[in-house]
């Protein structure tokens, strides 16, 4: 565990708690893509199946359990409790366009041809693109609420910090996982445009809106 990974994990935790808190507090999930949240739920569930087979640390187990629980709670709020506020007209990204190719790729490119390993690989690939429905929704409506922007910024920061973590681990531990690194870089690149808008708008107290 190095500082970059720790801060990255905390940023990840902050992001998902922030989104859950926003939905709960405002009693509304307007502007939030339920599809991105379903895919993140799928990511955590398929990746953390090793909770049952592989103990790493109390920290690791606790974080995994929290991620799964928060993801399920968020999906529940969007699709059940506050369903009336869910903006499904703008959440039109087709999940199968991501899940099917990503599933195929996980079968073809993985470290080990076992069920658990393929599911882990699937979750890594899926996480790299799971935010697309959310970004697509923002590009459709042309704006995002400020808390949603903070959520995306915290989530993107987690990804960027993980890259620094991998550089650190490569140099100091000789460790690298090419699948995680390539997928992680793809994922981080997807946030770049958003980061730019966040820094130029949200940090200056403006709402995030896209140029017409």
């Amino acid at each position: 565990m190095n500082i970059f990974r720790l801060v990255g994990d905390l940023s990840h935790l902050l992001a998902i708690l922030l989104l859950l808190w926003k939905i709960w507090k405002t009693r509304s999930c307007a502007g939030v893509s339920g599809k991105s949240q379903i895919m993140f739920g799928l990511v955590y569930i398929t990746r953390y199946l090793d909770l049952f087979t592989n103990f790493i640390s109390i920290y690791n187990t606790t974080m995994k359990a929290i991620f799964i629980a928060v993801a399920i709670a968020t999906i529940y709020l969007i699709y059940f409790k506050f369903k009336a506020t869910y903006d499904s007209n703008h959440d039109t990204f087709r999940m199968e366009f991501l899940i099917v190719p990503v599933g195929g790729l996980a079968f073809l490119v993985n470290h080990d041809f076992t069920a658990l390993e393929i599911l882990w690989t699937f979750s890594i690939y899926l996480e790299s693109v799971a935010i697309l429905p959310q970004l697509f929704m923002i590009s459709k409506t042309g704006e995002a609420e400020t808390i949603t922007s903070h959520y995306l910024f915290a989530l993107g920061s987690y990804r960027a910090l993980y890259i620094v973590n991998w550089v650190y681990r490569y140099y100091f531990e000789g460790f690298f996982d090419l699948i995680a690194i390539v997928a992680g870089c793809v994922q981080t690149i997807l946030y770049c445009d958003f980061f730019y808008l966040y820094v130029t708008k949200v940090m200056h107290g403006k709402k995030l809106s896209l140029p017409a």
Partner: peptide, 10 residues
Amino acid sequence: HAHGHKHDEL
């Protein structure tokens, strides 16, 4: 990578 690839990151 050997069998039982260990994933210690989140």
